[in-house]
Design a protein around this nucleic acid. Structure first.
Lengths: 207, 207
DNA sequence: ATATAGATCGAACGTCCGTTCTAATATTAT
DNA sequence: ATAATATTAGAACGGACGTTCGATCTATAT
């Protein structure tokens, strides 16, 4: 039943009991990998740790994934794709430029709050892959970047800001969150979103 | 001649030839470590790589540093201290709140441009140390954070922003720079500083 | 019930890593 | 010159790591 080397691409909608078991295991491994990578870093984490957390034998991992890199690849590809897709979904119904910028920020923060480990691994291990894996993840990242950039550009319209610079500053605020966010202290995600939106739109001068 | 286990704290101003040689070697090792850690990540980098880049024997490293962690500690402690000290120096003569905020941003970006590897290692390996090493670096980071925070607070004065949130968003923009900065493309550091200052102060709405 | 393919497991291999130990060399002090 | 000390060098250790392999177990199909 083992399929493609790229787990995202599910071959057939084979909904046998076996297939469902397979997918369940695969997801549980990815969840374990996400937790371990987030805690130890990709290089510092061992496949043995992932196996232990997923309650599977070490070699069992290699039945589902061809190597350690592919674990990170699957994680990053899936998470960045989700980030991009959910944002596209939100933007589809919005026309007002400020609403769209708000959607960008809320989408990022809400997805982060719901998948802290995933987002942290994505943001912190940007350079841990290489070759084909790296390039494919980079493609998705670029798609997401372009989408965010287009929303920023729409808000900038006519003003003398460098679009990429403005986008990257926003990116920084969004991505840095994993280093300080505390689920207890910063429970209210909407407050974070509003705070950033206000500052980014109007600056810290306005109240 | 080997001194304290914490290289920052130079014991005596022993200016013998030997001592000067010792310090030179020590700095060359730190520079090598900075380059290797920036490229491979702290966990991914090997002490052998650092030794090779510093053109010293592997065991030579252990004459100057007690272990690999101490290399990172020395690097981070020194760089964060510098960041803090240079900012304090700049702020000493400035009273206007916007000027002071500008100093924060310029200080960070200029120091980054001049020591890309150091800053990257500092920002990217925030969690790679533990125990005493971690705590001591954290102390310096906190000092720097408080200083930046106080400048932000001064600019916020009376307005309904959360001071920590506002500081952390600024932090994000500042620290994220290592992921995208290209010395050729973004040669003009002052342009970066001005761009961020404008956005952070006035938002993207104003031209 | 038996055959077949899917899934799990235990054990091992080769490699690289951080660190240490001891000997050798270079520099300074007497 | 000789002794003392600072520094470098080479070799090795024990352990952890990613990965592989063949055996074994399990579920499905006939």
């Amino acid at each position: 039943m083992k399929q493609n080397s790229i787990p995202e691409v599910i071959t057939k909608n084979d909904s046998t009991k076996r297939h469902r078991q397979y997918e369940k295991r695969l997801r549980s491994i990815l969840r374990a990998a996400s937790q371990v990578f987030a805690k130890e870093g990709f290089e510092g984490a061992s496949v043995r740790d992932v196996a232990a957390k997923a309650k599977i034998n070490l070699s069992g991992i290699y039945y589902y994934f061809t190597n350690k890199d592919e674990l990170l690849y699957a994680l990053q590809h899936h998470t960045f794709s989700t980030l991009h897709e959910t944002l596209e979904g939100r933007l589809a119904t919005l026309r007002d430029s400020e609403d769209r910028l708000k959607a960008v920020i809320e989408n990022h923060f809400e997805l982060f709050a719901g998948n802290m480990d995933d987002l942290k691994v994505c943001v912190h291990e940007l350079e841990s892959l290489s070759g084909k894996y790296y390039r494919e993840v980079l493609d998705v990242r670029r798609k997401y970047y372009r989408l965010v950039r287009s929303v920023v550009a729409q808000n900038l319209d006519g003003r003398s800001h460098d679009v990429d610079l403005a986008t990257l500053f926003l990116y920084g605020s969004l991505n840095w969150v994993y280093t300080w966010y505390d689920a207890d202290k910063n429970a209210d995600i909407r407050k974070l979103s509003d705070g950033l939106l206000k500052i980014y739109m109007n600056g810290i001068r306005t109240s």
